[in-house]
């Protein structure tokens, strides 16, 4: 299989994740869509690693996973804190920048 297939799949998954970020209102679901985007990029990196014949792409994917894990931890902690005070997890609640 040429890398092109994997890359196109990665692009599709990335876009789906992107649309999900834009469309969903529940903060946790938005977070999950971000995870989907990260996973899609991981797929692209790994397929490039196979293409180039060295493991650098896999290393990067590894680090992406590490960072994503850390990010999820902190993000969810923030979400919890907000939920405690506001009792709502809708993304649309943060609209103080409204004209």
């Amino acid at each position: 299989m040429s890398p092109t297939h994997y890359l196109v799949l990665s692009a599709i998954l990335f876009t789906i994740g992107g649309i999900g970020v834009l469309v969903r209102r529940n903060a946790i679901v938005v977070f999950m869509c971000v995870e989907l985007m990260l996973n899609a990029t991981n797929l692209a990196f790994v397929s490039f690693a196979r293409m180039h014949g060295n493991l650098d792409g896999q290393i990067i994917a590894f680090f992406v996973m590490v960072v994503a894990a850390a990010e999820v931890v902190v993000g969810l902690a923030i979400l919890m804190t907000i939920f405690r005070t506001r009792r709502s997890s809708s993304v649309d609640d943060a609209n103080l920048l409204k004209y």
């Binding site: 469309v23 649309d92 103080l96 409204k98």
Partner: peptide, 8 residues
């Protein structure tokens, strides 16, 4: 009015 304030 473009500034809806919504993150999305």
């Amino acid at each position: 009015r473009v500034q809806t304030g919504f993150v999305r």
